[in-house]
Write a protein that binds this DNA or RNA. Structure first.
Lengths: 225, 225
DNA sequence: GGTAAATAGATAGTAATACTATCAATAAAT
DNA sequence: ATTTATTGATAGTATTACTATCTATTTACC
């Protein structure tokens, strides 16, 4: 049961058995991130994942109902992690402007932080989130799964950011819209820079995360002035 | 070959045979919009579509390689249509502010315009775009398909909007980012209002499109001042 | 250290999906 | 009236997304 690093408390309807709690499960998570990155959601199968960890399909089905739930688990883990980083960086920071700056920095640049767990490569997970996370909620059963709380980590995180926005600008009418848009915009614009460059002003070079952060700060503070 | 209504010139790699050019193809399009809306992309199959138009799988495969290409065809059609509406409403309109207002109105409210074609229900197509369009480009082969020009309609449209932004505010550094974000934001916030209300300030009532338009205008003009 | 309980491996099987191929029937174009 | 293009009917294959069962191996704990 070798427990390593931090663990997040994720909604228990996401999994059959929480992979964070066993070394097999941690291997599963670790390999699934690499494989989602490699194959994309559509080509990813439990059979291929089983091969990657020298295991069997049946064993993986003991942890997750299907690959959708696995992706949802990873996205929830990711948002919990970003929320955790934001919390840490907001401690003892009172200035509302600086607080929002820190939030935007963490949204865009979280994956450059030092790793928290041996079995999650946050950097590659971020890539997976950019490419695949929208598929986790653009589904037929979104209402049912929302009732079950399967998107809670994201909603809590958006609420956290909305509160930072409200503290800076209490009269602003759309704090939740702006907050969720910050997350969606960040993912989209990185994706566009990498794949559909005509849809963004961000160039696909090393500096892109910093440039994006700058752009998002610029727009955000204009909106809130 | 009964040709009805307007036709858009879509990239020929989207289809094997352009469905706009035959009455069978038009029936196919018409039914596919309803079926995507009904089932969602994942549960949609060519077999079910064939049943819906009393035809066979094999016949549908003569028009489209797979359901991904069909969805991509519909999204391109949709963006061509929005572009067409924007063009019409910008004729003889010189004031840069009013031009941007019209653009935002069309992005959010296009589906309330009077229908252009008998075989496309633009209103339901808009719903499909909101729910499914992001899956059309979040794919492994995005770079290859982009080279083939399969996302051209969207890129042209974003460029059109970016130009309207530039005319209003020539010194603004991120016109493409803002333009693509207007489209993505519009779809996302409607989706959130309907399914994940904690992520937005827009309430899910009749007025939501107008409220969203108002919110987007407010933020957009703040950014460009 | 020994035994029960939990976990993982191995294998098999099924229904549905995503196609491809072939040939006959029908509608359109000349 | 006849060639040509289009659609229908049917069959077949590999892969996917599971479920079930039984055995082997760890792990927990007394």
């Amino acid at each position: 049961m070798g427990e390593h690093g931090i663990q997040f408390d994720l909604n228990s309807d996401l999994f059959i058995k929480d992979p964070q709690t066993s070394s097999y499960g941690q291997k599963l998570l670790s390999a699934s991130i690499l494989l989602f990155d490699d194959l994309g959601f559509e080509s990813f199968t439990f059979k291929k994942l089983a091969q990657a960890i020298s295991s069997t399909e049946a064993s993986i089905y003991r942890y997750f109902e299907n690959k959708h739930k696995l992706l949802l688990y990873l996205t929830n883990w990711y948002w919990e992690w970003v929320g955790y980083l934001i919390n840490i960086h907001l401690i003892n920071l009172e200035d509302p402007k600086k607080r929002l700056k820190v939030v935007i920095h963490q949204i865009v640049n979280a994956s450059n932080e030092s790793p928290l767990t041996p079995y999650v490569n946050e950097n590659i997970l971020h890539k997976v989130i950019i490419q695949e996370s929208s598929k986790a909620y653009h589904i037929r059963d979104v209402d049912k799964e929302n009732k079950e709380g399967l998107f809670e980590s994201y909603q809590t995180l958006v609420d956290k950011v909305a509160c930072v926005i409200k503290r800076l600008s209490p009269s602003f009418a759309y704090p939740y819209m702006l907050a969720s848009n910050l997350f969606e915009m960040s993912n989209n614009q990185i994706f566009f820079a990498e794949h559909l460059p005509k849809l963004t002003d961000i160039k696909n070079n090393k500096d892109k995360y910093n440039k994006l952060e700058e752009a998002m700060c610029h727009m955000c503070f204009k909106i809130l002035n």
